[in-house]
């Protein structure tokens, strides 16, 4: 059975998916400056996947891509956790903060709007966790929609 909503719903959801994904990526990338972070931004991007599945009733076969993305996210998170030991400190130590490289700028003390090139390993961990959460929640939605008959896999 082919499930499909009306053409108005499909057009509006196809247009609205773009700002939802951009807002989620903004939440992930600015996690060390504004409220948000990896988990919140990943959940917002995964809700765009839910919108596409519910409105169109069909999605391409992204199962392998999502699995690879999720495993890569968890592996990079482990590697970032052990980076502190490699640099000579304890586990989860913020060894890149203030060193001047990527995400290595210094912040002023007190209340300030902030600068995105700061934070050390915290923005990198935000990006990695966001990648994992996007892939995990999208994969759960994809599998449940396919097996409940509400979505058919496009070739």
């Amino acid at each position: 059975m082919k499930w499909k909503m009306s053409v108005i719903v499909r057009t509006v959801s196809d247009v609205m998916v773009v700002p939802i994904i951009v807002f989620g990526i903004y939440l992930i990338l600015h996690g060390h400056l504004t409220p948000g972070g990896g988990f919140q931004g990943g959940a917002v991007v995964a809700s765009a996947t839910a919108l596409l599945i519910v409105s169109n009733g069909a999605l391409k076969d992204y199962k392998g891509d999502f699995s690879t993305m999720e495993s890569a996210g968890l592996t990079f998170f482990f590697l970032l956790a052990f980076l502190g030991i490699v640099m000579g400190f304890a586990m989860f130590y913020n060894s890149l903060a203030g060193t001047g490289g990527i995400f290595g700028g210094t912040v002023m003390s007190g209340i300030n709007p902030g600068y995105i090139n700061t934070g050390g390993t915290v923005p990198l961990m935000n990006i990695v966790v966001g990648m994992e959460v996007i892939a995990a929640l999208s994969l759960i939605l994809w599998m449940m929609a396919k097996n409940s008959g509400m979505m058919e896999v496009e070739k």
Partner: peptide, 9 residues
């Protein structure tokens, strides 16, 4: 968003 979608599926 996500919980409602999963429950409806």
């Amino acid at each position: 968003a996500l919980t409602t979608a999963i429950f409806i599926f």
